[in-house]
Simulated scan of single mutants.
Amino acid sequence: MGKIGIVFFASLLFLLIIFPSYCYAAITKANPLSIGQTLSSPDGSYELGFFSPNNSRNQYVGIWFKNITPQVVVWVANRDKPVTNSAANLTISRNGSLILLDEKEDVIWSAGENFTSNKCHAELLDTGNLVVIDDVSRETLWQSFENLGNTLLPQSSLMYDTVHGKKRVLTTWKSDNDPSPGEFSLEITPQVPLQGLIRKGSLPYWRTGPWATTRFCGFPQFDESYVSPFSVVQDVARGTGTFSYSMLRNYNLSYITLTPEGQMKIYWDDGVRWMHHLTLPEILCDLYGACGPFGLCVRSVTPKCICLKGFIPKSDDEWRKGNWTGGCVRRTKLSCQANSSMTTQGKDTDVFYRMTNAKTPDLHQVASFLSAKQCYEGCLGNCSCTAF
């Protein structure tokens, strides 16, 4: 009897140790994912399971980098509705949708789509993409890469489709301990060429500047020597655009995240620790409209605003107080503004002032001129054109 008791105790202890790290190959109706269990990508880079931010009582289904400390969560399913008890299952519904059920079998979260096939399974790919696949056709019915949170991984993308009124954006967590959507979002705009834009609520907060073949122009980090990991595809005729990024150098893992404070940060894993690659915005000068119309922000230890040549502060009093958002106004009107009936009069008196290290204005337009001289003459002859 003593030997039997020892064997039973050892077996029970073994089960208690391995149960929390038990890994499924796939999620099905017959094999749901429960609290304490995880699903790993085939190469072991990513892991899907339940987590609690800051050891709170709230449980969320998320994806994170496996075996990396501290834990970096890159996607959350039930952002708005955490599990608040000790039992829950992530499973496939009778209609083929990925759903999260609580202990009473009530739906906490759903992928939001029902499919005609009831023979489906969910698996986690080596890219970190959670997908629902039809077992018969092998078609991907749903994927987390098309339902982003606050993080962009290589092979995932931001997008817009103006014809169908669709866009894919990043949204911040409300705080580091609360993955529900915060007030900042990151998107790409349908301008030509497109640019990246962070919004605070509905208002512009920061922008990249327009895309210029291999990089975004308009700020010091992206000069001609910068090896850009970014990729942009824009189809003006179809009204679509995508933004993605690739691995840089030989780093195996990386991510772009949008923080609760509204900063876009890029990290690469060198095998030992996370390497910080880029943070934007960084200072006052990076913020949208920090110096107002025709104002220029001087990047220094203490950033400040100045007016462009030929302009003066709109309000001297506000300018002295350090409130620069009102911007600047012209000292004198342009010749074409003084006599709007003569659209070419400005050619004789109006001139352009060359500027360097300045971001292209937000409301830019692409003009089909063959040379810089033609662009100069075309802009000078158009009173609504203020720079080129």
Results as ranks from 00 to 15, higher is better:
G5T: 10
V7Y: 05
V7M: 08
F8L: 12
A10Q: 06
F14R: 03
L16I: 09
I18N: 08
F19T: 12
A26S: 09
A30E: 15
N31Q: 08
N31V: 08
S34G: 08
T38G: 09
F51A: 03
N54K: 14
V61G: 09
G62V: 07
V74H: 01
A77L: 14
K81F: 07
V83D: 01
S86L: 10
S86G: 05
I92M: 15
L100H: 04
D102K: 04
E103C: 05
K104E: 10
E105T: 10
S110E: 07
G112D: 05
F115S: 01
C120D: 13
H121Q: 04
E123G: 00
E123C: 00
E123V: 02
D126P: 02
I133Q: 10
D135K: 14
Q143A: 06
G149V: 04
N150F: 11
N150Y: 09
Q155W: 07
L158K: 04
M159A: 15
H164G: 03
T172A: 15
K174P: 05
N177C: 09
P181L: 12
G182S: 09
T189N: 01
V192M: 12
P193T: 02
P193A: 01
G196E: 00
K200C: 09
S202L: 12
Y205W: 15
R207A: 00
T208R: 03
F216L: 02
Q221W: 02
F222K: 01
D223G: 00
Y226R: 01
R238H: 13
G241M: 00
T242Y: 04
F243W: 08
M247Y: 07
R249A: 11
N252I: 09
N252T: 11
N252F: 06
T257V: 11
L258E: 00
Y267S: 11
Y267R: 09
W268Y: 07
D270R: 06
R273K: 15
M275R: 06
G289E: 11
C291M: 11
P293N: 01
G295N: 12
S300W: 06
P303D: 11
K304F: 13
L308A: 14
E318H: 05
T325R: 08
T332W: 05
L334W: 10
Q337F: 01
A338V: 07
S341D: 12
T344H: 06
Q345T: 08
Y353N: 06
A358R: 04
F369I: 02
C375F: 03
G381A: 15
G381K: 13
N382E: 14
